[in-house]
Design a protein around this nucleic acid. Sequence first.
DNA 1: TGGCCCGATAAGGCATCGATTATGTACCGT
DNA 2: ACGGTACATAATCGATGCCTTATCGGGCCA
Lengths: 315, 315
Amino acid sequence: MTLTQLSAFILVARLGSVTAAAKALGVSEPAVSQALSALRHQHDDKLVIRSAGGMTLTPGGSRLLPIASQMVALGAEADAAVRAAQGAAEQLRLAVTDVIAEFVANPLVEAFNKRSGESIEASSGVAATKEMPVLVANRLADVALGPQMSGDTAHELSSDPIFRCRLVAVGSPRGRYRGRAAGWPWLAGPSATDPGSETRKVLDKLRVPDSAIQVFPNQTAAWAAAAGGAGVAVAVEHLVASQLQRHELVVVPTQVTPMAICWHATTLSRDRRPAGAGSLLHFLATPQAMRVMRSPGAGVPPARFRPPVYVTIWS
Amino acid sequence: MTLTQLSAFILVARLGSVTAAAKALGVSEPAVSQALSALRHQHDDKLVIRSAGGMTLTPGGSRLLPIASQMVALGAEADAAVRAAQGAAEQLRLAVTDVIAEFVANPLVEAFNKRSGESIEASSGVAATKEMPVLVANRLADVALGPQMSGDTAHELSSDPIFRCRLVAVGSPRGRYRGRAAGWPWLAGPSATDPGSETRKVLDKLRVPDSAIQVFPNQTAAWAAAAGGAGVAVAVEHLVASQLQRHELVVVPTQVTPMAICWHATTLSRDRRPAGAGSLLHFLATPQAMRVMRSPGAGVPPARFRPPVYVTIWS
DNA sequence: TGGCCCGATAAGGCATCGATTATGTACCGT
DNA sequence: ACGGTACATAATCGATGCCTTATCGGGCCA
């Protein structure tokens, strides 16, 4: 399976014709036909079949097409990326938990980029807790922001505490939440689906069954639903401060909350980590960074906004 | 640049040693060395250089590594995807706007999957309005949910209206918003960065400068900030109904809002679209789908939750 | 300085890619 | 039925991929 073969397949699928694809690629028709044939034999699937008004994709072909598109595009991107790297700013990739991504990653990155001038350019992506040590150890991310890391790869990673805060449960002021927390309806952001997250640990300790949990696309939406009386949500205390202050939400005590937690920054051990990662660690210890982490909520100008991207392990 | 070469590079970067990579791959050391050499010549960059305690990445190498990882992983995924497709459920990929992704995509997909039994499996991804016709036309998505599509590729696409609603501006009940809307502080979700979105059109019509706009990672967060008095937010009226009812937010009239809009479902023209896309169009016209689109807010059980994924054009 | 480890390079062999021209074969319309 | 269009296959050929063994070269340490 080569990139040329995939390109041929993509064009056939898009143009609905082998001949048209050959013309587009500037080669003879059998060249394309043969590339297609190679893919078909390898995958043991016709991928595209003749039909009225062009070639249509088989189920297998329609699965392959988006993957092939990515591979071909990445091939081009690889070239551009290496070329752009000569004389470009050092790049720093952060892997962050869901909650951090939603509230502090953007302003933090913004502040760090501004502070480091043009010399370092940081960006962030969301990852599951379990993936973080792998991402960092494999250099697919330079710094991970989340819970403390420990495990088999711990010897080559270093985890430094950067911020202490508390997890609480919140609900509507008009709600009545007494007795067994496991029986309440719980509302949560995506972090409830991450087995390694602090949020998930709270739910586990309370023995809340999955059937009692509703997952929302983000933390804020879960809080909004909680404010509407739909249930109880797990929250980082200082991040819901404004909702608490406006009495849209109140803290609901449970057996395990308030619970003290600590965000950590995980990198490769000192001698193996890139220079930019060290700069960021320094920055995270400054009062400016503390301020950003403590007071959330500020948006970002449109030009600087980066939508949250979910990072996965590509091993 | 072949996948074998990239694999060799990846292992060298990760293991910090050519010999170790060769051992891991089960080949001789020069084989790896040669693969590396080919990549180096092609990109005119050393990619990895000898240094104390292993090989370290050059700037170019560190850009290449994550891309290479993706390509290699996708290679494996391609195989698995095609294999899994034999006898698997038909798969339907939705490209949706930011706002739809946040509120209705998950419950809509959930309802459709349930209704279609095991025969169709739908999933959704976020895309910019401008990308949608391209994604659909190139079969990288089967259905796009967003504004009406028109343009050069319009002849092979069909856009059907599925839901009518209104855009309004909302702010804190304690806020004072009079006079020129362009002067107010505006709060928005990521859709404010999408030039084709209805939200962006409202901001443009009001001639709000970028400096007056703060972008939040999601719509709900922008509303929460607006409720806190930080400014005015654009909202789909029925999606903020609960906040309006609880008087956390009130509608702020402007020159262009309330503004009637209509969500459309865009697919390939009838004869070229896959069967599943037709089923979804039918479903979208049912009272059940209307109900889901009208009443947002419901979360999803953890097992069914899918984090929002941003789809990009891989051409 | 002399070994030693590790990576780079050279040379050779086999397989595959990617292209060509020529030919076979299925579908469609008059 | 027949011709035309379009895809599939065959035969061929040069270039490249990818692996091997053998050799060279450059730091590191006793």
